[in-house]
């Protein structure tokens, strides 16, 4: 999942940023997004396990365990493979997603109970991911091309940028993202505004860890829905960047294999 890539930054990118004045806020916003993308370039692939905790308005919770494999691609969006480890009755169910910089993503689903792979064609980016407060579009790889940008303000190391989705099917009118310039342009917070431009959700990144002295990864992501008062917490185990995944690990056959 490339999205974590932009939450991190590279030292080189800082140098690349010109702090020249006279830039329009649109240009500066785009520049920041590009800097963030650049800072996370080159991680190759990663494997991470995560626990997803869903909490409803009354505080009742339910948990899911997943494993995510991500392969970085530069010419197009990243590939990812997610396997459900629990609850027991969905163990082994797996999804394979090819994100695209332009157009609908490709998605396959493997169901162990019928031992079949189903290809799913859907424009449904704004829908929730398995009942969580995260939409697909929040989780899929954050390509720079997917938004129009507007720099809003600077607060110490924090750069606040408005991101307007290009896709008309997005569930949002805009997102307001906070980048941390001093920590490799990693993301600290995103606020999501719904179609009527009311604050819908806030995503907070915490427990950041630096890998390979270059890639920042938040080990805890908390999404709060202000309208439904539901929350979803993602807790990541240690990232494994050493697995050297390749294209063959992201095919229908691999999907079946991963699901067992």
């Amino acid at each position: 999942m490339k999205k974590y890539r932009i939450f991190t930054a590279a030292f080189t990118a800082i140098l690349a940023i010109s702090m020249s004045y006279g830039q329009s806020s649109e240009e500066r916003g785009l520049q920041i997004a590009k800097a963030a993308e650049k800072a996370d370039e080159g991680f190759g692939s990663s494997i991470v396990e995560l626990k997803m905790t869903l909490k409803n308005k009354n505080g009742q919770t339910s948990e899911r365990y997943l494993t995510t494999r991500t392969l970085e691609l530069t010419e197009d969006g990243d590939k990812s493979l997610i396997v459900f480890d629990s609850p027991k009755d969905v163990k082994g169910t797996a999804t394979l997603t090819f994100t695209h910089k332009v157009g609908a993503d490709d998605q396959w689903l493997y169901l162990p109970s019928i031992k079949r792979v189903k290809r799913i064609s859907s424009n449904n980016k704004s829908g929730p991911f398995v009942g969580s407060e995260f939409a697909y579009e929040d989780l899929s790889s954050q390509e720079v091309e997917k938004y129009a940008y507007k720099f809003l303000k600077e607060d110490g190391d924090m750069l606040i940028v408005e991101q307007d989705p290009v896709d008309p099917k997005s569930g949002y009118t805009r997102r307001v993202a906070t980048y941390n310039k001093g920590k490799g342009y990693r993301l600290e917070k995103i606020e999501f505004y719904d179609r009527k431009n009311a604050l819908l959700k806030t995503l907070d990144y915490s427990d950041y860890k630096l890998y390979k002295n270059k890639f920042w990864r938040a080990l805890s992501l908390n999404m709060v829905n202000h309208q439904s008062n539901k929350e979803t917490l993602l807790k990541f185990s240690e990232y494994n960047f050493g697995s050297e995944l390749v294209d063959e690990d992201f095919t229908e056959v691999a999907l079946k294999r991963a699901g067992r």
Binding site: D89, V90, T95, L109, L111, P112, N124, F129, G171
Partner: peptide, 21 residues
């Protein structure tokens, strides 16, 4: 298992503003 996995699939297909809840 079939029912649970179908439900997961269904959950994955829900649009914005709808969830199983």
């Amino acid at each position: 298992e079939e029912a649970a996995q179908y439900l997961l699939l269904y959950e994955l297909s829900l649009p914005f503003g709808l969830d199983l809840n």
